[in-house]
Design a protein around this nucleic acid. Sequence first.
DNA 1: AAAAATTTTTAGATTAACTTAAAAATATGT
DNA 2: ACATATTTTTAAGTTAATCTAAAAATTTTT
Lengths: 220, 220
Amino acid sequence: MDISHTEENYLKAIFKISERNGKPASTNAISNEMNTTAASVTDMVKRLSDKTLIHYERYRGVTLTGQGEQIATHLIRKHRLWEVFLVDKLHFSWDEVHEIAEQLEHIKSKRLVERLDEYLGFPKFDPHGDPIPDADGNFTIRKQALLSELKTGEQGPVVGVHDHTTAFLQYLDRMELVLGTTVKVLEYFEYDESMRVLINNEREQLLSKKVCQNLFVQKQ
Amino acid sequence: MDISHTEENYLKAIFKISERNGKPASTNAISNEMNTTAASVTDMVKRLSDKTLIHYERYRGVTLTGQGEQIATHLIRKHRLWEVFLVDKLHFSWDEVHEIAEQLEHIKSKRLVERLDEYLGFPKFDPHGDPIPDADGNFTIRKQALLSELKTGEQGPVVGVHDHTTAFLQYLDRMELVLGTTVKVLEYFEYDESMRVLINNEREQLLSKKVCQNLFVQKQ
DNA sequence: AAAAATTTTTAGATTAACTTAAAAATATGT
DNA sequence: ACATATTTTTAAGTTAATCTAAAAATTTTT
């Protein structure tokens, strides 16, 4: 059975939505994620159901079958491995790689993925700190919290971002808040929910509510 | 203007055919190269003509416009650069890379190609000895001849293959006739057009007519 | 130069992926 | 619980890319 580029993207969207909301993906949620119409989704969802890649009952939303989930996680695996390649080997910055990886993830070759993984040193996380699933679709789980959830005095290394937009990533670059940087909460301002933090035990910095709510820090 | 995966493949086919035959690509030649029907080609050729990527007059064959040629050579550039990547960095063998590169060549990102080129050390030839065009579509030209065209006593390094099939490439691997190997013609047998050659000034080898007609050797 | 063979184009259909607009089903508010 | 709002599906149609079969144009043969 072969599966189109488009079908793959639908499966990935369904995976993301279900993971995010912890429940079946609605037609509207999918159309929104895919920048298409609800009618197109209904159409596609029938086809994916015929191929037993999803469970679908009209008006009840969509979940992935084992097969469908396997394809979705494999796409994510490829996407994130390619992102590592682009950053580590070709020296792209972390805000430039998403769109290219969006194309590269559709390249079909089992051996290519295996060799790329090996070449990159079997990385477990991509340049944004997102976990790279293994060949069976298992993600490494890490104890993490948003910086905004830490209490005064708590600290940890920055391990990921919640917001993946170029704007945020470039902001972090300018602040020299790369992955691995240690952040310690010195003071919390209830007024605007901002924080004064100590970065790498060296310099102090004021971070806005929005920034704190989008930075993942490793726990304990 | 955007151009589909399929349209790109047509342009590449037209480029190859015109280059091979030194005249406009016929509908049949294209349908043959693309494994499709003449009717499909006529259809597509109209669309490419509307986009001013080719010159087309019915019953008279097809040539590429400047724009079309630019796209075709850029595809070849990407294809061959990716082949170098697969062989040099991921350690694929030269008979395994064509199909993967066939997919990778469609990835759209100017910066990616530039960075890949740099990462690979600006190679001028791919793993099969085919020239890699530069960003302007110019190919490095090399003085070469088929081994079968050499006279007794002449010699040169192997620089390319005419036949790109897996069977031939694997045969060369088994014979340890990789690119760079020096071959000297010791004797020519008129009977079956085979040759006795000296390889790397070390060992003698008998090569069949077919092999000699598919190996490129650097001249003078 | 006419007949035969080949090549190319047109005509008519199909499929995947998409759209808009209307109808149907489900969910929500009072 | 019923009217209203929202979500989802169906219906009908479009476009790119393909196909088969038949017609038309070109080339080759004699």
